[in-house]
Design a protein around this nucleic acid. Structure first.
Length: 472
RNA sequence: GGCGCUGUAGCCAAGCGGUCCAAGGCGAAGGUCUGCAAAACCUUUAUUCGUCGGUUCGAAUCCGACCGGCGCCUCCA
């Protein structure tokens, strides 16, 4: 039984999809005005792991992630760079796809863009206005927070408390300082769309209400995003959608904790951020994923180089096992024994961990325990039956590769597609073996060291020497 | 001021009433194997879970107070 911590109820709840085995899931995507940073990456990766686990549980997930391609920040950037807002958005949409691909994030089923849903957006605003939840002031349309009685139910805020807070901007046009923009009147030079209130563009929150409804229905299962979106963004989405449809908007709200640098929030506005693409130049995407998976998705995560390099080191253990497994499967040894090994127990433990609100730290601990026990069996026995390794590969494939995305089980032992290179290496290995027999260790070590310098690692085992490409 | 999160070994981090005299990763120390490496395995590394009280047969886990850290309430994942 899968349980999920629901921000709306502030407790763990059993997950019951509306229409099993289908699960409809919406994740707030990027505003495409810059490369996304490693903090954004945490949300995207953890959402990806949640999606992958739901698929592991045989749910049919419809995964939608919006791309906000009209926005103040995009307009600002376009002015700075002296480009069309549209081309800024297009450039960073392209970069977004490159980056998520690099991070091994499975693509969503649909990536709706605000600019492609203007009719849906204006229709929703019209509906809100017609029902009395919105008001038009000279081409600017605002949501009237006082009309929605449940306002604040997600973030646990009360309208009165919010009003007494000192940090709300004063806007003469608004009836209430908490009211928010649904439609912004176009200023000269800004991109605009026509509407019954005149030319303008949508406010920040409305696109998510319009697009999630269009692609996932009026009520859907899961809505996820960063912690900071709880208020006001998600609160406002609820207000818009529930006022318009008269139905519950979302059953399960999932929020991701922040990634900090030196215990301080990393954000674009503070300027202390690393882009995901820069991080992936230095560390493998699997290490990035593991370091995120090793801490609970909801809490803060203090990001550092040590975190990544310790994940990279830990991953080595898993990669070595994967390489060994592939090697053994090639040999198809039937001579070896099939040790006593409780594969089912590991699967059960993995699922129990993930079922408990996606406890990825626990789940990865299960995988490391598994790896140790397999290695132990291999160390204690001269050889193991290849069917044992088939089960090993199957377990790692389901968990580490498919769900967490921290391991690539495709055969990495050969240098890709260059057989002459491989034959040359085999030749050197043979020469080195001969040198070793003659006790010419100076030569044999020289071969090993020289190959290491060009990124080829030799490892001696009892009866043969294997090589592998050194991964950055 | 309101709302929420958080304090566990050198570092990161699970556990949230007994099966925990506390997982897993990194690091460190010793050992096995090896010509030497590497890999792998074994052992050691928290008498203790921010502090002080309380509840309980039993608490890292529940309650209270106190001391720290962080986030949201303004664009932000």
């Amino acid at each position: 039984m899968l349980s999920i911590y629901n921000t709306l109820t502030k407790q763990k709840e059993e997950f019951k999809p509306i229409n099993p085995p289908n699960v409809n899931m919406y994740v707030c995507g990027p505003t495409v005005y810059d490369y996304f940073h490693i903090g954004n990456a945490r949300s995207f990766i953890m959402a990806d792991i949640i999606r992958r686990y739901l698929e592991y549980k045989n749910y049919k997930v419809k995964y939608v992630m919006n791309l906000t391609d009209v926005d103040d920040k995009i307009i600002k950037k376009s002015i700075q760079e002296n480009k069309e807002a549209k081309s800024v958005a297009e450039d960073f949409v392209k970069a977004f796809f490159e980056d998520i691909n690099k991070l091994k994030i499975k693509p969503a089923d649909i990536y709706p863009k605000a600019t492609e849903h203007m009719n849906d957006i204006t229709k929703l605003i019209e509906e809100l206005e017609d029902k009395g939840f919105a008001y038009n002031v000279d081409g600017n349309v605002f949501y009237d927070v006082s009309k929605f009685k449940d306002y604040g139910k997600l973030s646990g805020k009360k309208i009165d408390d919010l009003e007494s807070g000192a940090r709300i901007e004063i806007n003469e046009e608004k009836k209430n300082p908490l009211d928010f923009s649904l439609w912004k009147k176009a200023k000269p030079g800004e991109p605009f769309w026509s509407s019954r209130w005149g030319n303008g563009r949508p406010g920040w929150h409305i696109e998510c209400s319009a697009m999630s409804c269009k692609h996932l229905g009026e009520t859907f299962d899961i809505h996820a995003g960063g912690n900071d979106l709880i208020f006001p963004h998600h609160e406002n989405e609820i207000a818009q959608s529930e006022a318009a449809n008269g139905k519950k908007f979302v059953n399960y709200w999932i929020h991701f904790g922040f990634l900090n640098i030196n215990d301080e929030k990393m954000s674009k506005s503070l300027g202390n951020f690393f882009t995901a693409r820069d991080i992936v130049k230095k560390y493998s995407p699997e290490a990035v994923r593991l370091s995120f998976a090793q801490t609970n998705y909801a809490g803060p995560l203090n990001f550092s180089e040590e975190l990544l390099s310790s994940a990279e080191k830990g991953l080595e253990k898993l990669r070595n096992l994967a390489d060994k497994t592939n090697e053994e499967l090639k040999n198809k040894s039937k001579d070896g024994i099939f040790p006593e090994f409780d594969f089912a127990r590991y699967e059960k433990n993995f699922e129990a961990a993930m079922d408990d609100d996606f406890n990825t730290p626990q789940a990865s601990a299960v995988i490391f325990d598994f790896a140790r026990e397999v290695n132990k069996a291999a160390a204690e026995n001269a050889s193991l039956h290849f069917e044992f390794y088939q089960s090993v590969k199957s377990f790692l494939g389901k968990t580490a590769e498919e769900v967490l995305g921290i391991l690539d089980l495709s055969d990495q032992s050969q240098l890709s597609g260059n057989s002459i290179e491989n034959e040359l290496i085999e030749l050197l290995i043979k020469l080195r073996a001969e040198a070793k027999i003659e006790k010419n260790f100076k030569l044999s070590d020289k071969i090993r060291d020289s190959l290491k310098e060009i990124g080829i690692i030799l490892q001696d085992s009892k009866d043969r020497t294997t090589f592998k490409k050194n991964k950055p």
